[in-house]
C-alpha cells in the first residue's frame, strides 16, 4: 500500500465510522440480543431467567393469538401487494403517454403515498369506513343502490376489517407508480419500433417488450412492498385503539409484538415473536430470489 492509498483508506474509515457504530450498536448487537432474549423470560423488573425453547413451544402449540396474528398479516400482505402492484403498473402505463396536464395527474396520484402511513391519514380512513355515515358506504350505495344499512360494516365487522385495511393501502399506489414510471421510461423506444415492424399489436408489445423490460423494477418493488406490509402497524393501532379488534380480526404481528413487549412486559416472548416475523420475512425474500428466473436483465444472455 502506498502512502496515498493508506491516506485514502484512513479517511474512508473515518467517514463510515458512524455507520459502523450503527451496525454494531443499533443492528448487529440488538439482533443477537433479541435472539438470546427469545430463550428467556424477562419483565425488566425481576432478574432475567433462561427458559430454553419454552417461548417458541408456547407460541407454536399454545397460543392461538400468534396464529391469528400471523394469518392476519399474511392475509393483508397477499391481498394488498399483488393487487396494489397491478394497479400501480396500470396507472404508470397510462401516465407514460403524452397527455395534457400529466404533471397534475402525477401529483394527485403521488401525494397520498407521501402522506403515507401517518396517524392523520389513518384517522381520515377510520371516518371513511364509518358504516352508517362514512364516505365509502355512501359511494357504494350511490353506485349500486344497496341501502347503506346493508353495506359492509368495515372496521366494526370481523369479516370486513382486514379488507378495509387492504382498501386503504390502495390509496398509496402512487408510490409504486412513480417507480414504475421511471422504469417504463428506461425501456428503449427502439424495442417498440422493432416490435411494431414485426407486426406485434399493443397487447403483444406489452407481453414481449414492456413486461420483460420492467421485470427488474417489479422484482425490486415486490421484495420491498412485501417486507413493508409484513410490518404494518400504526394504521391498525390508530383505527382499532391499539387492540386489533374486532375479535382480533386485525391483530397483526407487529401489533402483537408491541402488546406483548410494552403492555404486558413479556420481553422474552415478544423477542421470540419478533424473531419469527424476521424468519418469515427472510423466507419470503429468499423464495423470491430463488424463483427470480422471470426477471430479465438487459445486456445479459438468457440461457
Amino acid at each position: 500500500m502506498t502512502s496515498a492509498e493508506r491516506k485514502e483508506a484512513i479517511s474512508a474509515y473515518v467517514f463510515i465510522a458512524p455507520f459502523l457504530l450503527a451496525i454494531i450498536f443499533m443492528t448487529g448487537g440488538p439482533v443477537l440480543a433479541a435472539f438470546f432474549l427469545s430463550f428467556c423470560k424477562w419483565d425488566i423488573l425481576t432478574p432475567i431467567q433462561f427458559v430454553g425453547l419454552e417461548n417458541y413451544k408456547e407460541m407454536f402449540f399454545n397460543d392461538p393469538r400468534f396464529w391469528k396474528a400471523l394469518y392476519n398479516t399474511a392475509y393483508f400482505t397477499f391481498l394488498s401487494v399483488p393487487v396494489g402492484m397491478v394497479l400501480s403498473i396500470m396507472v404508470a402505463m397510462l401516465m407514460n403517454q403524452k397527455i395534457r396536464g400529466i404533471a397534475v395527474y402525477r401529483t394527485i396520484y403521488y401525494l397520498p403515498s407521501v402522506l403515507g402511513a401517518g396517524v392523520a391519514v389513518a384517522v381520515l380512513w377510520k371516518w371513511i369506513f364509518n358504516a352508517d355515515s362514512g364516505l365509502l358506504n355512501y359511494m357504494i350505495s350511490l353506485c349500486t343502490g344497496i341501502p347503506m344499512s346493508e353495506c359492509p360494516k368495515w372496521l366494526a365487522s370481523e369479516f370486513w376489517s382486514k379488507n378495509a385495511l387492504v382498501i386503504m393501502s390502495f390509496w398509496g399506489v402512487g408510490g409504486g407508480m412513480i417507480i414504475y414510471l421511471a422504469g417504463l421510461q428506461g425501456i428503449p423506444t427502439a424495442l417498440y419500433e422493432a416490435a411494431e415492424i414485426d407486426g406485434a399489436n399493443r397487447w403483444q408489445q406489452f407481453w414481449t417488450v414492456t413486461l420483460p423490460g420492467l421485470s427488474p423494477v417489479i422484482f425490486f418493488q415486490l421484495i420491498i412492498t412485501i417486507v413493508n406490509s409484513f410490518q404494518i402497524f400504526s394504521q391498525v393501532y390508530v383505527m382499532t385503539d391499539g387492540l386489533g379488534g374486532p375479535a382480533d380480526s386485525t391483530l397483526v404481528m407487529v401489533l402483537y409484538i408491541y402488546q406483548k413487549a410494552f403492555k404486558y412486559y413479556q420481553m422474552g416472548y415478544a423477542s421470540a415473536l419478533a424473531w419469527v416475523l424476521f424468519m418469515v420475512i427472510m423466507l419470503a425474500t429468499w423464495l423470491q430470489f430463488r424463483y427470480a428466473k422471470w426477471v430479465y436483465y438487459e445486456g445479459e444472455l438468457r440461457k
Binding site: E8, A9, V31, A34, F230, Q231, M253, A261, L277, I281
Partner: peptide, 29 residues
C-alpha cells in the same frame, strides 16, 4: 474511496435493510 473491506461492508449495509425494526426494537429500547 478505496479501502479494504469496502465490498463486504456495503453488502452488510444492504442486508440490514431486510431486518425488520421490530427485531432490534426491544434490545435497543
Amino acid at each position: 474511496l478505496r479501502f479494504p473491506g469496502r465490498g463486504p461492508l456495503f453488502i452488510l449495509c444492504l442486508a440490514t435493510m431486510m431486518i425488520p425494526t421490530q427485531v432490534t426494537m426491544i434490545p435497543t429500547f
